[in-house]
Amino acid sequence: MFEDLVQSLKEAKAITKGEIQPSRRFTVEAPDVRTLREKTGLSQAEFAGLMRVSIKTLQNWEQHRRKPTGPAAALLHVVAKAPDVVIQSLHIRQ
Rank of each mutant, 00 (worst) to 15 (best):
residue 3 E to F: 11
residue 5 L to P: 00
residue 5 L to K: 06
residue 8 S to H: 09
residue 8 S to R: 14
residue 9 L to P: 02
residue 9 L to M: 09
residue 9 L to E: 13
residue 10 K to S: 06
residue 10 K to A: 11
residue 11 E to M: 12
residue 14 A to D: 02
residue 16 T to K: 11
residue 16 T to M: 13
residue 17 K to Y: 08
residue 18 G to A: 09
residue 18 G to E: 10
residue 18 G to L: 04
residue 19 E to G: 04
residue 20 I to C: 09
residue 21 Q to W: 04
residue 23 S to W: 07
residue 23 S to P: 01
residue 26 F to C: 11
residue 26 F to E: 15
residue 26 F to I: 15
residue 28 V to F: 08
residue 31 P to N: 04
residue 33 V to R: 03
residue 34 R to K: 14
residue 34 R to Y: 10
residue 35 T to N: 09
residue 37 R to G: 05
residue 41 G to W: 01
residue 42 L to V: 01
residue 43 S to T: 15
residue 44 Q to R: 09
residue 46 E to V: 10
residue 48 A to Q: 12
residue 48 A to W: 10
residue 48 A to N: 11
residue 49 G to Y: 06
residue 50 L to E: 03
residue 51 M to Q: 02
residue 54 S to F: 08
residue 54 S to C: 12
residue 54 S to P: 02
residue 55 I to F: 03
residue 56 K to L: 11
residue 57 T to P: 02
residue 57 T to S: 13
residue 58 L to E: 03
residue 59 Q to V: 11
residue 59 Q to N: 05
residue 59 Q to Y: 10
residue 60 N to P: 00
residue 61 W to Q: 01
residue 62 E to W: 02
residue 63 Q to W: 01
residue 63 Q to Y: 06
residue 67 K to Q: 15
residue 68 P to D: 02
residue 68 P to R: 02
residue 69 T to S: 15
residue 70 G to K: 11
residue 71 P to Q: 15
residue 71 P to W: 09
residue 73 A to T: 09
residue 74 A to S: 14
residue 74 A to E: 13
residue 76 L to Q: 12
residue 76 L to R: 03
residue 78 V to N: 06
residue 79 V to A: 09
residue 79 V to R: 04
residue 81 K to I: 10
residue 83 P to I: 04
residue 83 P to V: 05
residue 83 P to A: 01
residue 85 V to L: 14
residue 86 V to K: 00
residue 86 V to S: 07
residue 86 V to R: 02
residue 89 S to T: 10
residue 89 S to F: 10
residue 89 S to W: 03
residue 90 L to M: 15
residue 92 I to Y: 08
